[in-house]
């Protein structure tokens, strides 16, 4: 049984191959984009709104509130990145219910890609917030001896981010596969349901952690500002 979607190749040209990870990622992207486009092409700014618009507004407002709660900042500039992380992972995991579908998040390549995105986004947001020098000074604080440890910390948490998501999703798939061979019919379905919960929780955890990392990179600037003001 294949549990790694990277191994399922639909089309290959040289080293470039169209595997299940990319194909299902495109499916998730298409689904998200299509739903968004269908709903938002007839948006109403009045009091009478459609159910779909209401759903999207609830989702977007919920994400905004979470970002605001974690970062204690205005969520506007973080919403596209963090919100997309959450929605992509959540939808990718939820679609696990569909027979024949394999969640792209069950591929270490996808989770690594997402973790790399977070790894790059954190310093970008930090630099954008407080400037490059001030941001990179964080790595030599309290002494320059902490520089390697800070760098290791950055890399390790990125790896942890990738592996955590991958491990949880992949383990769900593996558990279902094993249970199917041992106790078919009923018990795997329960585990699938558990997988839905796990998938949503992992999407939430991934997005929240990404936001925490970004917030820690930008909140330094804020706290330094506060200290300067106090002085």
């Amino acid at each position: 049984m294949t549990i790694n979607p990277d191994a399922i190749v639909f089309w290959q040209w040289g080293r470039v191959s169209l595997n299940a990870t990319i194909a299902y990622t495109w499916l998730v992207m298409a689904l998200l984009t299509l739903i968004s486009w269908l709903v938002t092409r007839n948006l109403s700014s009045g009091t009478g709104i459609s159910r779909w618009q209401n759903l999207l507004e609830v989702v977007v407002t919920g994400i905004r509130d979470q970002i605001k709660e974690v970062s204690q900042q205005q969520p506007g500039k973080y919403l596209p990145f963090v919100g997309t992380l959450f929605l992509f992972i959540a939808v990718a995991n939820l679609l696990n219910m569909v027979p024949g579908y394999m969640a792209p998040t069950g591929s270490l390549s996808t989770t690594t890609a997402l973790a790399i995105c977070v790894f790059v986004a954190v310093p970008l947001y930090g630099i954008a917030s407080e400037g490059p020098i001030s941001y990179f000074k964080r790595y030599v604080k309290p002494t320059i001896l902490m520089l390697p440890f800070n760098i290791i910390g950055e890399i390790s948490r990125t790896i942890a981010l990738a592996v955590r998501l991958y491990g949880n999703i992949m383990s769900g798939t593996v558990i279902v596969a094993i249970l199917l061979s041992l106790t078919p019919y009923f018990f795997p379905i329960v585990m699938q349901l558990l997988g839905l919960l796990t998938g949503m929780i992992q999407a939430y955890i991934f997005a929240i952690l990404a936001m925490v990392y970004i917030a820690s990179a930008t909140s330094v600037h804020t706290s330094n500002d506060g200290q300067r003001r106090n002085k």
Binding site: N19, I22, T110
Partner: peptide
């Protein structure tokens, strides 16, 4: 390669 593609996809 998949990682790169996924980054671009994301």
């Amino acid at each position: 390669i998949t990682v790169s593609a996924q980054i671009i996809n994301f």
